[in-house]
Simulated scan of single mutants.
Amino acid sequence: MHPLRAIGLTATAEDVYLALVQRDPTTPAALAGILRVPLDAVVEAARELTELGLVEPDDEGLVACPPRTALDALAEVRAKELGALRDSADELARFWRDHHAEGPGYIEIVRTDEAGEALVRRVQDEATHQVRALSIGPSGRLAAPPTVAPGCLEALARGVAYSVVYGTQVLRDPIGREAIQTCVNLGERARVFPDVALNLKICDDRFAVVAAPARDHQRRHHIAVQRSALLDGLIGVFESYWQMAVPLPAGDEPMDDVGAAPTDDARQLLTYLSGGLTDEFIARELGVSERTVARRIARLQEVLGAQTRFQLGVQASRRGWL
């Protein structure tokens, strides 16, 4: 369980904070020795933590601050980012309606499966630097199970950086999880967000391929977007999702079955949370420490793709866990 990595901090930053929580004020040099990492890595981690208000300097070194205030403030920022994401989606939709009828040169609509697959393959084959993607997986009742996109493994092998935000529905499919794990093992950075709205692949900063979900897979159209204000907007949409999404485990940490039913303890914990009970009360009722309660809550947030406890309750309710 990695509560700080789940909100985008580095592993070193998380280790530094946890070490400081258990110690008196400690110098960066001493922390570097304790954690067996380079001093400059500790200094950079301390900068990350200080910016979030989780660490502050002391006459004798660095000292950990209580996490609740700092992370509640971060949750507010992320909530505003989500609002900005929705506003961007509305603005892009208006932009699309204003320009689509005239058939601008920077947009190409592909109406056959074969042409759409060829367009997606171009992303993998032509990328020289990075591929950024949003993935809800195949859509429609006739859609095939999710698999590794053709050309993706070859692109990873030649050093193309992949950053992908997956919708939780992809992770509910064992075949989908296996495909994702294959890519993560080869270096893909993967995150999960509960409500990814469309399939999107961005090839470097040169062009993007968009495929909106459809009930009938045979009717799904792919849209290629070349360099334009619209492409810039799509890149911004991806970055907003990336900031709010939860990191998936690294290659040596197998993914859990996010579609599995909760344990009795997890269900009881969610019930207590929905009732607004404190961590202290929950810990006493479950017979565990408050730190264990916090870890379990953070893990449930990671599994359900929730950034806040409120979102955790919403996602648990949607799945019928409450």
Rank of each mutant, 00 (worst) to 15 (best):
L4C: 06
L4K: 00
R5F: 06
I7M: 05
G8C: 06
T10I: 05
A13N: 01
V16K: 00
Y17D: 03
V21N: 02
V21Q: 08
Q22W: 14
Q22Y: 13
R23S: 13
P28D: 10
L31W: 03
V37I: 14
D40H: 10
D40K: 07
V42G: 02
E44H: 12
E44C: 10
A45S: 13
A45L: 07
E48I: 02
L49S: 04
T50F: 06
G53R: 03
L54F: 07
E56H: 07
D58K: 03
E60L: 14
C65F: 05
L71F: 02
L71R: 01
L71E: 03
D72E: 11
D72W: 15
A73F: 15
A75P: 04
K80Q: 14
S88D: 05
D90P: 05
E91G: 09
A93S: 15
W96P: 01
A101P: 05
I107W: 05
D113C: 08
R122Q: 07
R122M: 06
V123S: 00
Q124D: 14
D125I: 11
Q130K: 11
G137S: 04
G140Y: 01
A143D: 02
A144Y: 13
C152N: 13
L153I: 11
L156V: 04
L156A: 03
R158A: 08
A161I: 11
A161L: 08
S163G: 11
V165W: 00
Q169W: 05
V170I: 10
I175P: 02
Q181A: 15
R189G: 09
A190F: 01
R191S: 10
V192Y: 00
V192D: 00
F193G: 01
F193Q: 05
P194M: 09
D195E: 14
V196K: 01
N199D: 14
I202H: 01
I202Q: 00
D205F: 04
R206G: 13
F207Y: 10
F207R: 02
V209L: 08
V209K: 00
A214K: 04
D216E: 09
R220Y: 03
R220G: 01
I223F: 06
V225K: 00
Q226E: 10
S228V: 04
A229D: 12
A229E: 15
I235W: 03
I235V: 14
G236A: 10
P249L: 06
P249D: 07
E253I: 12
M255V: 12
M255K: 08
D257P: 05
P262Q: 09
T263S: 14
D265G: 09
A266C: 12
A266I: 11
R267N: 08
Q268H: 12
T271D: 13
Y272R: 06
G276R: 09
L277Y: 07
E285L: 07
G287S: 06
S289D: 15
A294G: 11
R296H: 14
R299M: 14
Q301S: 13
Q301W: 00
G305Q: 01
R309G: 12
Q311V: 08
Q315R: 15
R319Q: 09
